[in-house]
Design a protein around this nucleic acid. Structure first.
Lengths: 339, 339
DNA sequence: ATGAAAGCGCTAACAG
DNA sequence: CTGTTAGCGCTTTCAT
């Protein structure tokens, strides 16, 4: 079914059909004709060929979304947020997983470019990124999500990590903790840097409180397990740990259990991200809730605005993160003994 | 950058460029010329326009994937499996979320059809589905994933739910349970039907064991909570429940806690699906592990095969599900008292 | 208000 | 082996 079939059935020219069926141009055509055309289209079950339109208009009405790992519960809500905003605007998201692999990322980017997506939302985010610098040079529309790049002034949508970390530290100190550890995540993630800085600053505001930074090689359960295990082996354990994300926190919980320690009795743990499942962990995890869905919609809005106006703004939108207090944090026992 | 630019720079005709750059036709062109063309393309940073190619070849090299809820941990691994198979074959997935809403589903299907996807993988799955019947009539390539339709003979990829449920029941009965409940999920999901049937059959194989079927309005934490709460209020609780999925199981766990009951001491619980997080629930959940990633790759393989041969096979691939025994199941205490 | 004609970037016959 | 030509389905001037 093509536009020609509809034209034939309605007894008009192709161009008239195009005009009648297009929201922007339907006023240019006689009411009665338009109705006749729509009827014909309906009867034939005609669906406009977006590919042909794209070729002609040089716009595909699609957005490339690059995600490191869809399996990480962080990202699906963002993707939903993105689609939630795109769909009513007639856009579709092409989603590509990269497993954080540079080559796959490049391949995904090229593949999506070849498909002439109108812009990208990129939720990857090493700090230095050849790919993104390239894109910027070529004038490709991009909005960064979750993590930014320092190389290039693309717009960025994040959770307000700093505020979240600060709230976590204040909460812990308020409970009486004096020896905190922050499991910081990989050094080359901008989020890690921001959170680490906020952690140190927050700790510094409280007299008599020490805060240690422990980098982790990844943001995974295994990394959290390994790092906490290390700390425990050296008899170096703090009374409370602020994990860089919920996965690390789960790893910490496992390490504690393996060493016969209990949370929060022996060590308090705060997660980061507010994955749904944290409520049903053992114990239910105190965590910093980040508004992932809204981050997605916001990124999509920014991108579509940029595309519509064909400019490349450079704003940073930071959505509020809030501390959810559950059962993995309590007053320190060991500190009481020491005192 | 178009094919014409490359042709000019290499001093050959557009068609030659097309041939040189296309894996299928590059043998038709002189080695030296081909090298010259590739060099020119490289230097200009030429990326073939997939839209134009699609218009010409009437194939978009793109697959529509329809998912009810990306936030359900069940689906991301399937999506990754799909992409894992598609990418090396040059295909890209267009993913659409439907929230299980019929209208959104229709909208997604139409939108993807307009984009001329070469086929669909549909992971939705009410048993009767206007949309899918339509698609079948129109000769659209579809593979069903996770849940099937009874209306139309599309190929289907599932986990072997029946085997999983049977293993769960045998495990429970082996522990000494004689009174089981299966939280079955909505009646109009094929998975619910399959699991219910398997549950009854498995129970029937053991003398002196009763198995009750309790349908739930949805496969959510809240539904699990409500249904278990209901059972508990009526003093009607079994010694063990086989939940239709992990979310329901989490709900059951919460209901138990609210009634001051403990798992597995008072009631044993088995989940279904093997979401990652079930390992860190309180208590770690015994569950039936379903191979989601492989289901995704398998569905993609089936679909691409159908597309390549332009036929519509009608096979059902059922991938083995395995019982993972953790701490939410144990011998019944109450039964011992009764005996 | 409608029709005619051109062309988006590419591939596939067909010639040569 | 390479060039010529036509056309995929649509939108967009330009006429009328």
């Amino acid at each position: 079914m093509t536009i020609a079939d509809v034209a034939a059935r309605a007894g008009v020219h192709k161009a008239t059909v195009s005009r009648a069926l297009n929201k922007m141009t339907e006023h240019q055509v006689n009411q009665a004709t338009a109705r006749r055309v729509r009827k014909a289209a309906q009867e034939l079950g005609y669906v406009a060929n977006a590919v042909a339109r794209g070729l002609r208009t040089n716009s595909s009405m699609t957005i490339g979304v690059i995600i490191p790992d869809l399996t990480n519960p962080l990202f699906p809500p963002m993707v939903r947020g993105i689609e939630h905003y795109l769909a009513p605007h007639g856009y579709t998201a092409l989603i590509a997983n990269t497993d954080g692999d540079d080559d796959l990322e490049r391949a995904a980017f090229d593949s999506l470019s070849g498909r002439r997506v109108d812009g990208f939302i990129i939720a990857t985010g090493r700090m230095h990124h050849e790919l993104i610098a390239d894109a910027y040079r070529r004038g490709v529309h991009v909005v960064m999500l979750n993590r930014g790049t320092t190389d290039v002034p693309y717009s960025l949508v994040t959770g307000s990590d700093a505020a979240g970390v600060t709230a976590a530290v204040d909460h812990l100190v308020g409970l009486g903790h004096r020896d905190l550890v922050h499991l910081a995540g990989p050094k080359d993630f901008t989020t890690s840097t921001v959170r680490s800085g906020a952690f140190l600053a927050a700790v510094g505001r409280h007299a008599g409180v020490t805060g240690r930074l422990v980098p982790t090689p990844a943001l995974t359960i295994d990394a959290g397990l390994a790092c906490m295990d290390e700390l425990l082996r050296h008899g170096d354990a703090p009374t409370a740990v602020v994990a860089g994300n919920d996965m690390l926190a789960v790893g910490v919980l496992r390490a504690l259990r393996q060493h016969g320690l209990r949370c929060p009795d022996d060590v308090s743990v705060v997660g980061f991200n507010g994955m749904d499942s944290t409520e049903d962990l053992n114990p239910p995890l105190t965590t910093v809730q980040v508004p992932h869905f809204e981050m997605g919609t916001e990124a999509a809005r920014l991108l579509l605005d940029d595309i519509a106006s064909d400019e490349q703004r450079s704003v940073t939108v930071s959505l509020p993160a809030t501390l959810i207090i559950r059962e993995s944090t309590a007053a320190p026992r060991r500190a009481a003994l020491v005192a």
